[in-house]
Amino acid sequence: MSSDASPAPAKTPVTLREVAASAGVSVATASKALNGQGRMTAETRERIRETAQRLGFRPNSLAQSLLRRRSFTVGLLTNDTYGRFSLPLMSGVSDALVDAGVSVFLCNVEDDMRLAQLHVEAMLDKRVDGIIATGKRIDRHLPVDLANLRIPVIYAFTQPDPDAVGFESDDAGGARLAVEHFCRLGRKRIAHVTGPASFAVVHERARAYREVLAEHGLPVAEPLLGAWSEAWGHEAVGKLFDRRAGRAEAPDAVFCGNDQIARGVIDALRERGIGVPDDVGVIGFDNWEIVAEATRPPLTSVDMNLSALGREAGLALLSLVGGQAAAPGIRKLPCRLVVRQSCGRPPDG
């Protein structure tokens, strides 16, 4: 055998989910059996233990430290009434916690301080092991004080308390992905149509937009600010393509602050007989698939990776409950660009 032979790849550790599936029980039942907890027959408990031994399952030490609290639950608080951001985030949280046999309970607090406090008190009464706070925007705090609870709290996609741990998407990095992609495609006159000035992300993305254009030596136009709606996207096209507005040349690309604006932009361009992407490329933000994939042509969009963000928040909560310290502050997670047909191909095809 040659001395430079590659080593065999390491085996992936067996998860609690695999033990539960092989034993024909739920993840929670498997977890309780292996931790000497819960009410079940001796035969069931022994079958689960034998299955774990046969598969070579080794319990995660952080998960065990969490399970010793015996509630097997985590609370997820949100004021995102429609679930646009909280549901994909919750999916990631659940994925991070399921192998510890922990369930996630979602409570919608809307923007009601009294309702939020009632939900928090109910969670404490149920002895949840921790709380993840999330919302519909990253620059607003939920209408409840979570700073002095006796359990760990993680913030994800909402403004954290001072000295707390928070996770949010890198909006400026996401904007860079979009504008740099347009530059690679050979677009020279890139406009930016976005949401209200009261949102912090509007300014973060606009700053990144200006920086990328300046780096490429391209003309920088002031972003058009309006509502997060298709109607505003439709109206903005009139402002961009009206010759009386004093623009020497119309844009050949439009970077939009969300997918609804982008859809309005594309509809308005079609009504004017302007081809997308042949004449004008369009990129949105959020990658709301129900909108992006149904747009004609399908919409290229920046995805904030909310499921991954939720998973990181869940793992951070496991770590805190397990007794590990975490430095306070906000962790920014990268976005990704999902390329579809609305932005066109590079000049070389």
Rank of each mutant, 00 (worst) to 15 (best):
R340Q: 10
G284Q: 08
I132K: 07
L333C: 09
R137H: 11
P152Q: 03
S103R: 13
L16P: 03
H181I: 00
E18G: 02
V276L: 08
A197S: 14
L124N: 08
E18V: 05
V321L: 02
R345D: 06
V265I: 10
C107R: 14
D267R: 15
Q159V: 05
C107S: 14
F182A: 12
L55P: 02
R17Y: 06
R247A: 15
D259P: 09
P219Q: 06
A23S: 11
D286V: 06
G173R: 09
D170Q: 04
L118H: 14
M90R: 13
D286S: 13
W228T: 10
I266L: 08
Q117F: 01
H192M: 14
A8Q: 14
G173C: 06
G233C: 09
L67I: 13
A52C: 01
E43T: 12
M90D: 01
L97Q: 00
V128I: 13
F285Q: 06
T78W: 07
M123C: 08
N305C: 15
V302H: 03
A292Y: 01
T194S: 11
H203N: 14
S229H: 12
L218G: 10
R70P: 06
A42W: 00
D252S: 12
V102P: 04
E312Q: 15
G24D: 05
R39E: 05
E180F: 10
R247K: 13
G281E: 04
L320E: 04
A248I: 09
D259Q: 10
V265T: 04
P9Y: 11
